[in-house]
Design a protein around this nucleic acid. Structure first.
Length: 117
RNA sequence: UGAGUAAACCGGACAAUCGCGGCUGCAAAGAUGAAAAUCUGCAGAUGAGGAAAGUCCGGGCUUCAUAGGGUAGGGACGCCGGGUAGUUCCCGGUGAAGGUGACUUUAAGGAAAGUGCAACAGAAAUUAUACCGCCGAGCGAUCGGUAAGGGUGGAAUGGUGAGGUAAGAGCUCACCGGCAGUCUGGUAACAGGCUGGCCGUGUAAACCCCGUCUGAAGCAACACCGUGGAGAAACAAUAGUGUGACCCGCACGUUUCGUGGAGGUGGCUUGAAUCCGGGCGAAAUCCCGGAUCUAGAUAGAUGAUUGUCCUCGACAGAACCCGGCUUACAGGUUUACUCAGAUU
């Protein structure tokens, strides 16, 4: 299985924020920007509305795990940035996963496995 | 048994599957490359805290400044002894305050160098003073003596008792307090004794005085590499470089020095280290011997799922590294001690 490619530099993030299309929900914001090549790159960031570095880190891990679970169903050729926003106390991984699945369909980057087979 | 004091420690556990960081080893299958190597692959062990936090002190380390020394100014600290690389930290002790007690708290030098302040109340808040009183003189107005008592205040000119007196007063005496001198004990802070003598408030977390210490900035420090770009020098015109097997053709001046933006590499984990054993000491700490290597990321690694168990899980995430302080914290364990009660 292919390793997830991460966005690293600050300018890469800024490029996606400025030129990408964003899809907003209560818990997450997704920025999408098409790429010239066929790679799929991911950036994860969490808003400071989530207090405390422990909680922020935890949300980041959820987002990464969530992406990993659905990576094979996402269209290639895009830069994605997922932003974690304010989360109520009873949030857990499963709730986030449901939100995420809705979000990728809405953003029209949901490509079921046919692309790979 | 109940209530409490002090110290030390732990900070959900186990199993399975998938996933992540750097490390070590293997493999040579795939990709890049001239090579070294890098990525991918497989295996292995390993991977956040007691506060990682606040960034409040003290260092190491680095750069800048600086011949050496002193003074002023600024800042910090302030009972004594010991510990330490060092501190405002730690340990032990002294004084003071609190608690029945175990024990706790303590910015604890100087008010006899000087200045300031002390609201309201009160007669009076410091080279001051007499409101109600008390006593004496006087018919009285008033004058003189006094600071026991009342009253004000956070604080009122040592306190209690006796003598003394017109009434009173350290005026005198005893004890207590405080001051000065001296002796004894203690390394010292200080404690105790003796003698003299009766001494005018508090505030230095007000200025100040005395003593001690004191360059500045921080890993985004700093060192190295550095496509591009700015600069300098040298060389060349049938040359050189790239493309290519070669020629033609096409494109471009080339090389060196050097400054350094983006970016990269180092700094980056072996250290006042951890564990075990022994020793000096009342303790902090120190000494000796043995063993171990225990995160090193850079959009920043610990997560998800399932199952079992319990007390049902708090505060909370390394970012150069140590020592200390402070603050946050569900619940639990151990040891020592105190008070009250019960039983023997």
């Amino acid at each position: 299985m292919k390793r997830t490619e991460m966005l690293k530099m600050n300018y890469e993030f800024n490029r996606v924020f400025r030129k990408g299309i964003y899809y907003n929900t209560k818990y997450l914001t997704l920025y999408v920007r098409p790429r010239n090549d066929n790679r799929l790159m991911l950036g994860i960031t969490v808003s400071k509305q989530v207090k405390g570095s422990v909680k922020r880190n935890h949300v980041k891990r959820w987002l990464r795990e969530m992406y990993r679970a659905t990576e094979s169903e996402i269209c290639t050729g895009n830069d994605l940035v997922i932003v974690g926003r304010f989360l109520p106390q009873d949030t857990n991984y499963h709730k986030l996963l449901l939100v995420w699945e809705k979000l990728i369909k809405e953003a029209k980057i949901y490509c079921p496995k046919t692309a790979y087979v």
